[in-house]
């Protein structure tokens, strides 16, 4: 779920912008300049993947993928996510223009977290790695939802109810995201293990 314009108080929105800009700068610094075009191409793949709707009972949800982006892109993931959100805002109005910073933090921080945690499992057996990946990406959504709730709650007492609901709405997404990420990783592990190992063009998370 993306925050739209007009929800956050201006000070919060601006602070988030500043924080996001800082994180993007760090992410940019940690990515080799020659890798930038590659990260861009990969980001469009994630962008397209986030358009895919997964049926869930009578409705469908789209995946957030912060965990998966973190697993694949390491330090570059914040950059990738931020640019993806910019494009989403420009093309679809998913997430508002003034809330870009907030949305960037909401999705980018969990991606970094996922990257850091998954990094510990890179050399584990493929089964453990899969499990870790699934858990990490589920956890990524949990963190994203928590950040969303906190951000919504900054709007004052009036928004507390919406924040709680948003948190609750993410519960099924967490499960779904973990399951699907597990399958994605299993596929990638068989077909192109380089994507999970230490790829030469990816800067490592920590």
């Amino acid at each position: 779920m993306h925050i739209s314009d007009g929800v956050l108080p201006t000070q919060v929105a601006l602070t988030c912008f500043a924080l996001s800009a800082g994180c993007v700068a760090v992410s940019l610094k940690k990515t080799h300049s020659e890798d930038l075009p590659k990260v861009a191409v990969m980001t469009s793949a994630f962008f397209v993947a986030s358009l895919v709707h997964v049926p869930l009972g009578p409705t469908s949800v789209h995946l957030l993928l912060p965990g998966l982006v973190g697993i694949f892109l390491g330090w570059s993931s914040f950059l990738a996510i931020f640019l993806g959100l910019v494009l989403q805002c420009l093309l679809f109005q998913f997430g508002g223009l003034t809330a870009l910073g907030a949305n960037g933090l909401m999705m980018g921080l969990p991606a970094w977290l996922a990257a850091a945690v998954f990094h510990g499992f890179r050399d584990a057996s493929s089964r453990t790695r899969l499990l870790a990946g699934a858990v990490v990406s589920g956890g990524g959504v949990v963190v994203a939802a928590l950040i969303l709730a906190v951000l919504l709650a900054t709007g004052g007492e009036d928004f507390a109810g919406v924040a709680k609901l948003a948190l609750a709405a993410h519960v099924p997404v967490v499960v779904l995201e973990a399951v699907i990420t597990g399958f994605v990783l299993a596929f990638v592990d068989r077909v192109k293990p380089e994507l999970l190992g230490r790829s030469p063009w990816r800067s490592e998370a920590r």
Partner: peptide, 22 residues
């Protein structure tokens, strides 16, 4: 879910290959 996971995995694998060529 398995099919969707494969489907997304396929997308990522192909895009990774494409990054190098681009």
């Amino acid at each position: 879910f398995h099919a969707l996971g494969n489907f997304l995995g396929m997308l990522f694998v192909r895009s990774l290959e494409r990054t190098e060529r681009v």
